[in-house]
Computed example of a mutant assay.
Amino acid sequence: MTPEPSEPAEPPAPSARPNEPRFPDGPKPDPADSHHERRIRSFQPRRGRVTTAQGDALQRLWPQWGLDVDGQRVLDLPALFAQESGPAVDRIVLEIGFGMGEATAQMAAEDPTTGILAVDVHTPGQGNLLNLADKNGLTNVRVANGDAIILLRSMLPAAALDGVRVYFPDPWPKKRHVKRRLIQPEFLSLVAGPMKPGALLHCATDWEDYAEQMLDVLGAHPDFENTVPDGGYAPRPSFRPLTRFEGKGLDKSHVVHDLLFRRK
């Protein structure tokens, strides 16, 4: 997902000294490091400019609400979302790529009994989402730092997720980069494992050819079935907010396609 600009603008957080971690109690730059093979990635790690508020949230809240995708353990998702206050979480969804986290925070606020495990590699976005969760009293958000493929393959138990959301993944528009697109048969086979039967895989994109690819690949995969009777695109469901990034695309006459497929 293309990150949205945060506002209002704030001064950048102080930089770490050479050879010191940027956020000692926060997300690691490369949590999986040498534990996993090097491969073509569907993302580019982006540390980027971190504001003071984002850096403070990373330092304060990461030990409580954050986790590094290191591939070294299987997560206990009910324990991860256990909390002493706030509504009890009775379902858990995975969101892959969340930009600056504004839509994620809105979905969490509107559905407090659904836990959202949001994974991304964008450090400012991680800090911004933690800050939004803190400011709005959201206790149903957890932020994962690292490669979603490693998270799916090595850290999530079978049949543990009630849904997976992939909103506006990088379209990799150049022909030589199409192989980097996330929604591929191999990814769908991987994501099916931790999804419960009946769980919803929800994708959205404003790139027409990527939408067509998604529809073809999802429609042909044996583990998923289209929730739309005629096999086409779905209307945007009410629980997916209209983001500023999406609004800018609509202003440019981009057509946004939602795809809602159910795990068999």
Rank of each mutant, 00 (worst) to 15 (best):
M107A: 11
G137E: 07
L161P: 04
Q126S: 13
A148H: 02
A109E: 09
L152E: 06
I116W: 07
E102W: 09
L117M: 02
V143I: 10
A133P: 11
T123V: 15
D111Q: 10
V93Q: 12
D162V: 08
N136K: 14
W172V: 13
S154Q: 15
D120W: 01
M107F: 03
V143L: 04
E110W: 00
A158I: 11
D162A: 14
G115D: 00
V121Y: 02
D111F: 00
E110Q: 12
D120Y: 02
R142I: 03
Y167N: 11
I96G: 08
R165W: 13
D170M: 10
A109N: 00
L156D: 01
M155N: 04
I92T: 13
D147R: 02
M155I: 10
A160R: 08
R142A: 04
I149N: 03
N131C: 14
F98I: 10
M107K: 06
L138P: 05
V89D: 03
H122F: 14
L138K: 08
L129T: 07
V166Y: 03
A158H: 14
L129E: 03
F168I: 09
V143T: 04
T123K: 06
I116E: 00
A159G: 09
V119L: 02
F168K: 07
L132H: 12
A159S: 14
A103V: 11
H122G: 05
I92N: 03
F168C: 08
Y167D: 07
G97E: 13
T104Q: 09
G127F: 13
P171R: 10
R91E: 15
H122K: 01
D90E: 13
H122Y: 15
M107I: 09
P157C: 12
N128F: 11
T139S: 14
G115P: 00
L94K: 11
V89S: 04
W172F: 14
Y167E: 09
F168N: 06
A118M: 02
T139K: 09
T114M: 04
